[in-house]
């Protein structure tokens, strides 16, 4: 899906837990997330902490969308 949307000219940031799969399927802007069942969550943290982490990840995704790249890039 990520490639097809990118091909339409819209930049996509792929936020996912298993980066090698994203690299295989052709993601260009990749933001690694926390875990498979909760990519944007940390159930072991307090709700406030978890929300702050989630916000950080979204900010990282927005940063990736505004970054010029020439090849597949993982935004650690």
């Amino acid at each position: 899906m990520v490639k097809e949307i990118e091909r339409s000219g819209i930049p996509v940031v792929h936020a996912c837990s298993i980066v090698p799969i994203s690299l295989t399927v052709g993601g260009n802007r990749i933001v690694p997330t926390i875990a498979i069942p909760h990519p944007f969550g940390r159930p072991d943290k307090s709700i406030a902490e978890e929300k702050a982490l989630r916000r950080q990840l979204v900010e990282k995704a927005l940063h990736a969308l505004q970054t010029p790249i020439e090849k597949q890039t993982v935004f650690e």
Binding site: M1, E4, I5, S8, V12, V13, S17, P37, P39
Partner: peptide, 26 residues
């Protein structure tokens, strides 16, 4: 199928003037 869904979604997004996408995967 993934390619097909991607193409269909992309078409809608372009038509609706969307400029950027966050795609989340588990």
């Amino acid at each position: 199928n993934a390619r097909k869904y991607g193409q269909q979604i992309a078409k809608i997004l372009v038509a609706d003037g969307v400029q950027a996408v966050i795609l989340t995967s588990t």
